[in-house]
Write a protein that binds this DNA or RNA. Structure first.
Lengths: 183, 183
DNA sequence: TTACAATGTTTATTATATTAAACGTACTGA
DNA sequence: TCAGTACGTTTAATATAATAAACATTGTAA
């Protein structure tokens, strides 16, 4: 075997918060069978593996498709987030460095008091949204304008001209997402 | 088994213009083994099936993908996820009202201490990411697991089974985004 | 026809997977 | 502290898969 069948089954089982005995009961096999499979001490018959996956439930196709999934970097520590506008009035921390081919761009944004994306109102394709965490953010989309506070959010077609501006005395913090990446 | 494994193997073998003996030789099994499998008179061990497919050659993922039925309604899987973890332990607010036709789904999520999605979801939505704002969130993606704190983030292919769990004493807060199902 | 080679199938034996039950550990509440 | 429970692991017995070899059929060439 060129992949760790046991480890994969164990990962999937634990992901579903099932004990070996609980899964065994649902699958109609014994807990010992699952234990031995997870330790790679046996190579299960397809009928057994099918029963076990039915108990989760997961299809054989999905189970084996997991090995074909290319693994990207998944977790990012705070200081690993790419600082895009560092030092300026507006700074961005981008979730994921290497965005090539990715379908989403997620940003943790900080606006200094009074910071403004400017009047240019960049137009990029697709859609965009975000949640305000701290401070007050004035959002202008087309002819609509509104000041958002913590917990407020926005969502719009980003082909419409738009603009962000931090108002008030304190810094403003936002998490936003847009698709596709516009950089 | 809810599908005809033997017939599928036979079809694949004949498609490649291989005799049972020729394939057996390449695979390192006996011709009898292949005959019995194709007649569904045995349920092959995974090690045997793997050897046989290697002789064709074809991956297990491809072999089982042949039976894969297109998963519709994956779009609603997220709602199911939230219902399961619901009852107050996990609350969320979706940015925007009607999700239909949108390119992005953005959620502001709050996990009570110990709250757990408890389910590994398989979705057709391509990618997913988020930023932790408060508390400690244990994120499991495939067989990778990590505890994230404020400012930390995650990003992954959401077809991989995944799970979120709030650890520690304080509530956990996250803003996440994912691309919609691809039909 | 005859002989031969290649095909898929079947069978007795051997190897292995699965079961049922026991085992060890850790956690929990009385 | 002591049961009681749930967990993963291990082991002897049993069920099943894999092998090696024989069997049956078909097609082809001498």
């Amino acid at each position: 075997m060129d992949f760790d069948l046991g480890a994969r089954l164990r990962a999937v089982r634990e992901m579903h918060a099932l004990s070996q005995r609980e899964l065994a009961k649902r699958a109609g096999v014994t807990n010992g069978t699952i234990s031995l499979i997870e330790q790679n001490r046996v190579s299960p018959s397809l009928s057994s593996l099918k029963k076990v996956l039915d108990g989760i439930p997961m299809s054989l196709a999905d189970f084996f498709a997991l090995q074909a999934t290319p693994r990207l970097k998944t977790f990012f520590a705070r200081d690993e987030l790419l600082e895009i506008g560092g030092g300026g009035a507006i700074s961005y921390r981008q979730v994921g460095h290497d965005l090539a081919g990715r379908a989403l761009q997620i940003l943790h944004e900080r606006y200094a008091p009074g910071a403004d994306t400017g009047k240019a109102m960049l137009r990029h394709a697709a859609e965009e949204g975000g949640v305000v965490l701290k401070g007050q953010l004035e959002v202008t989309v087309g002819d609509q304008r509104r000041v958002l506070g913590p917990g407020d959010a926005y969502y719009f077609d980003s082909r419409v001209p738009h603009r962000f501006r931090a108002v008030g005395d304190e810094p403003c913090e936002v998490v936003s997402a847009c698709t596709p990446p516009s950089f």
